[in-house]
């Protein structure tokens, strides 16, 4: 069975490599205008240059800083908010609906307001990321606590535990998978909105590179910016997935 897995992975990478090779060939043979498309090797060369000059690492660090700050804020607000929603069920139901409605709306389009209020800078980006991450964290925390199988709590009551013990040793462990998946969802949304706003407004980290490359007709920089943003997101999602499966197959 392991070999079947191996064949699939190989097929996947061969496909990706073939795609890149085709791109390389098409550009090298001058079948397309180099203003529109550039060769992966040229992008890689640009990437190397920008890594040596420190530009690319600085961009990544800026993006990661924004994501990290937004995530921290989103957790600090979202987790207690989710707990409060559970603790006060009447408000929980009311605000759960409001938050869900907000989350289903195109909140990313609010970024001009954040720009106006926080100014054109990292503040606006972090605020935007905070908003997009806080909602799923609060909602998942609420749902996780709310949907804990009551039988687990009954075990605690049956052992005559104190409320504090039940919350700490039964309620939270039981809700943990749901809360963690909320955190994962939160980070994913934060990353998407941070990079999107960086690109749209051309401030901050890796998202700005594609925008600059486009406006200055620097095709290598444009493709490097796109690849960088996409690869960063994928690495992030991959690591989060790994962390999650590590936590739950212990």
């Amino acid at each position: 069975m392991a070999s079947r897995r191996g064949r699939e992975t190989a097929a996947r990478w061969i496909f990706i490599a073939a795609l890149l090779a085709a791109l390389e060939g098409v550009v090298r043979l001058d079948w397309v205008d180099r203003i529109f498309v550039t060769a992966p090797s040229l992008v890689a060369a640009t990437a190397w240059e920008k890594i040596l000059s420190g530009e690319l690492p600085a961009l990544f660090v800026t993006t990661l800083f924004s994501v990290g700050a937004a995530f921290l804020l989103a957790m600090v607000v979202g987790l207690p908010a989710g707990y409060a929603l559970w603790r006060f069920p009447l408000f929980g139901r009311a605000y759960d609906e409001l938050l869900s409605a907000l989350f289903a709306s195109p909140w990313i389009l609010l970024y001009p307001i954040f720009l106006v209020i926080f100014g054109r800078g990292l503040g606006a980006i972090i605020a935007m990321g905070f908003l997009s991450g806080m909602i799923p964290i609060a909602l998942n925390t609420h749902h996780g606590l709310r949907d804990v199988n009551p039988i687990y709590l009954k075990v605690g009551t049956g052992m005559r535990l104190k409320e504090r013990q039940i919350v700490r040793h039964i309620l939270f462990p039981a809700a943990a998978p749901m809360i963690l998946s909320g955190l994962k969802l939160g980070v994913t949304y934060i990353l998407i909105s941070v990079i999107a706003v960086e690109f749209l407004v051309e401030i901050g980290g890796i998202g700005t590179l594609a925008s600059k490359g486009y406006f200055w007709f620097n095709t290598e920089e444009l493709y490097l910016g796109m690849a960088g943003a996409i690869v960063l997101s994928m690495i992030f999602i991959h690591l989060l997935g790994r962390a999650e499966s590590r936590l739950f197959t212990s």
């Binding site: 699939e8 690109f199 925008s211 486009y214 444009l222 796109m226 996409i230 997101s233």
Partner: peptide, 22 residues
């Protein structure tokens, strides 16, 4: 499905707006 679904899911979670310049 087993070959292409994983990269598809990864790609689905990236900010597509970044492709706009193309």
């Amino acid at each position: 499905r087993r070959v292409f679904e994983p990269p598809l899911l990864y790609f689905a979670a990236t900010p597509k707006i970044i492709l706009y310049p193309i």
